[in-house]
């Protein structure tokens, strides 16, 4: 059962301060309402993984690693490789993360990242078939949240796409009835560079890329994932509250604009030659 979350008590004073600042188009960390925090991307952070990336979005740190294997395809998609996204909210990252089975927050995060990658067709899964109905490549994208200062969604999408963008696929060959791993590798082809843009609403105003305090003080957040061709592949409102339809339309415009900027920053290293 999903139960009303107990948000940590951030003081009423701080909530008031965040709203007061926003009325003057200011934020507690000095950013403007539509400004992202600094983004750092370290490609290939984990050498044991076939592809990995550590992304720092301000103080939020997300490590994404791709492990490649072979598996039996799902019955309804016998000619397609398997993509599975999983998110671990590691307890060392925040006092609100607890060990145990995946929380609904972690499930919702991994499902949103999965949709962003899958629906944008960033990976051509039909190119990952080895023997139809019997053997396909499996891509496990594991997201490790290492430090939590808000906006896990955007950081996780950036980390996953970067990790997939440098993934080296071990080549498998068919020998009679068996599928064997060879010493050769080939590059996983990335067809798109989706970015997610998250907005946190405080009353009728909103900020982009909320830090943790803003996230806690907000009524709800809206995330939108934009493809390289400016089309949308995932949208989700998280948290309570109501959003008027005209605000949604305003966010669509904003997301197209902000998406272009964010894409160059987030995937600069990929497109500069590594990718």
């Amino acid at each position: 059962m999903s139960i009303t979350e107990q948000k940590p008590i951030i003081s009423k004073l701080e909530q008031q301060e965040l709203r007061r600042l926003l009325a003057e188009n200011k934020r507690i960390d000095g950013r403007s309402p539509l400004q992202y925090r600094n983004i750092n991307v370290h490609l290939g952070y984990v050498e044991k993984a076939e592809g990995s990336a550590l992304v720092e979005l301000g103080n939020t740190k997300v490590l994404a690693a791709v492990k490649v294997g072979i598996a039996v395809p799902f019955a309804d998609t016998p000619n397609e490789g398997i993509l599975i996204v999983n998110a671990e909210l590691v307890p060392l990252a925040s006092p609100v993360f607890e060990p145990g089975p995946p929380s609904e927050e972690s499930i919702s995060l991994s499902r949103y990242v999965d949709r962003s990658i899958r629906e944008s067709k960033s990976i051509d899964l039909s190119s990952l078939c080895i023997v139809p109905g019997r053997s396909v490549y499996s891509l496990y994208v594991d997201l490790y949240i290492l430090d939590y200062d808000g906006n896990l969604i955007d950081a996780s999408v950036i980390a996953s796409v970067n990790a997939l963008g440098i993934t080296n696929m071990p080549k498998y060959v068919v020998e009679g009835q068996a599928v064997k791993k060879t010493d050769e590798y080939f590059k996983l082809e990335l067809k798109d560079h989706p970015v997610s843009i998250t907005y946190a609403f405080l009353d009728d105003k909103y900020v982009v890329d909320p830090c943790l305090n803003e996230e806690y003080a907000s009524d709800f957040t809206v995330s939108m994932t934009v493809k390289s061709d400016d089309r949308f592949c995932a949208i989700q409102k998280n948290g309570g509250g109501m959003i008027p339809p005209r605000k949604v339309i305003e966010l669509l415009d904003r997301s197209v604009e902000l998406g272009k900027e964010l894409r160059t920053v987030a995937y600069g290293q990929l497109t500069a030659g590594n990718g």
Partner: peptide, 27 residues
């Protein structure tokens, strides 16, 4: 959608749509 308060309380999307298509679908 709650018509009396003009508020959307549930909003999700997956699949591919352009901005114009999302707007049209919304209305």
């Amino acid at each position: 959608y709650n018509p009396t308060l003009d508020g959307i309380t549930l909003l999700q999307m997956d699949g591919i749509m352009s901005k114009e298509e999302v707007e049209q679908a919304l209305s």
